[in-house]
Amino acid sequence: MNYVMSFVVGGIICVLGQIVIDTFKKNNAYLLVLLVVTGTFLGYFGIYDKIIEIGHSGATVPLLGFGHALAEGAVEEAAAKGFMGALSGGVKKTAPGVAAALIFGYIVSIVFNPKGNK
């Protein structure tokens, strides 16, 4: 059941993203920023936790989930450490993903060469 819900919820979130792309015709960077910031606030207001309960990875894998993790980290750390926690919590919680992207990105750029015509 988790698998089905992951597929369906993840698919729906991607469809919403596609509608944004085709309607506004903006660079993908706008979409990514929109997703992360939306996810952060949905996370703060506790709405995204409910979506994760239903959708599991269908909600955590999309970038909205990245935003949710940012919010979760910031709130948890702020409760424990105050202002410094608010500053570092989100970064700490999402550090594995960011570091992985950077490090794998660098390794790939060493190993591979850019490919041309699509």
Partner: peptide
């Protein structure tokens, strides 16, 4: 389209592609 851009794969691709290019 958004099927690869919206999941974390889109973010990873946005990091790796300029690094490679």
């Amino acid at each position: 389209g958004a099927g690869t851009a919206v999941p974390i794969t889109g973010f990873a691709n946005a990091v790796v592609s300029p690094a490679l290019e």
